[in-house]
């Protein structure tokens, strides 16, 4: 049972929460970095290899494009359809092979990353799909290479949507990270499990909930801000709409 009057209780609570927060941030941060590095190119390739898109025939082979597209689409759907708890357990041999151990906060990053990549690939896919096809055509008409097209047209245009989707991705990684206690991973989820559930300390649960809430809010706010910086501001969107109809925008 908990004893709030104990002189060691509050310092201990704070220390446990801080440690849990750090572990969560560590797991989620590294998982997100790897997810971005892997998921971003995969998402672009997934859309690009579609029929009629800029990568439909990589190295001049349409077959290769079709094959890449089919395999990627399959893997992404597979990854997204397996429940995280099952995936985590199924990945234990893989994690052990990769890191020599499957227990602990470090190894827990592996299943977190594996579950986040398909999610993020879909995020990138949707963002890339929304880029005006006319822009690809324009870049092509300029004789731009695919790499230039991706770097100077696709990424600048898709970045705001990717950033907003990344916020959702991070949030779901945080969500999944609460479950890694099962494989000995740390973090706030584990705090809630070991202190809140097993020792009946509702104060720990409240602490965990508050921290997670603030964390998610901060992440959402930061990514939304970044997305706005990277993209068209709402006020200017209206001008775009106005100019599409040939009406001159009113100078502010």
């Amino acid at each position: 049972m908990i004893d709030v009057t104990s002189p060691t209780f509050w310092p201990q609570l704070i220390q446990v929460l801080l440690e849990g927060t750090w572990e969560t941030l560590y797991m989620v941060g590294i998982a997100m970095v790897i997810t971005t590095i892997v998921g971003l190119p995969l998402g672009i390739v997934l859309v690009g290899t579609e029929r009629g898109r800029f990568l439909e025939a990589p190295f001049g082979s349409r077959r290769l494009g079709q094959a890449i597209n089919a395999v990627l689409g399959f893997v992404v759907n597979l990854g997204r359809s397996v429940p995280f708890i099952v995936l985590m357990i199924a990945l234990i041999p893989f994690t052990r092979l990769l890191l020599g151990s499957f227990i602990g906060t470090g190894p827990a990053i592996v299943p977190l990353t594996i579950v986040a990549i398909p999610f993020f690939v879909r995020v990138v896919e949707i963002a890339v799909r929304e880029v005006d096809p006319g822009l690809f055509e324009a870049a092509e008409s300029l004789g731009a290479s695919r790499w230039l097209l991706v770097r100077r047209v696709l990424l600048p245009q898709a970045t705001p949507a990717i950033l907003l989707g990344a916020a959702t991705t991070v949030t779901s990684i945080i969500n999944f990270s609460a479950m890694v206690g099962v494989v000995g991973g740390g973090g706030l989820g584990n705090v809630a499990l070991t202190y809140g559930m097993q020792r009946y300390s509702w104060l720990h649960i409240v602490g965990v909930v508050i921290i997670l809430f603030v964390l998610v809010q901060l992440i959402q706010w930061a990514f939304t801000l970044l997305a706005k910086r990277a993209g068209i501001e709402p006020a200017k969107r209206r001008r775009v709409a106005a100019a599409e109809t040939g009406v001159e925008p009113v100078k502010a």
């Binding site: 005006d132 006319g134 822009l135 055509e137 100077r152 600048p156 245009q157």
Partner: peptide, 9 residues
């Protein structure tokens, strides 16, 4: 192009 096709960002 008719719709200019400029990179908005």
């Amino acid at each position: 192009f008719q719709h200019f096709n400029l990179v908005g960002n």
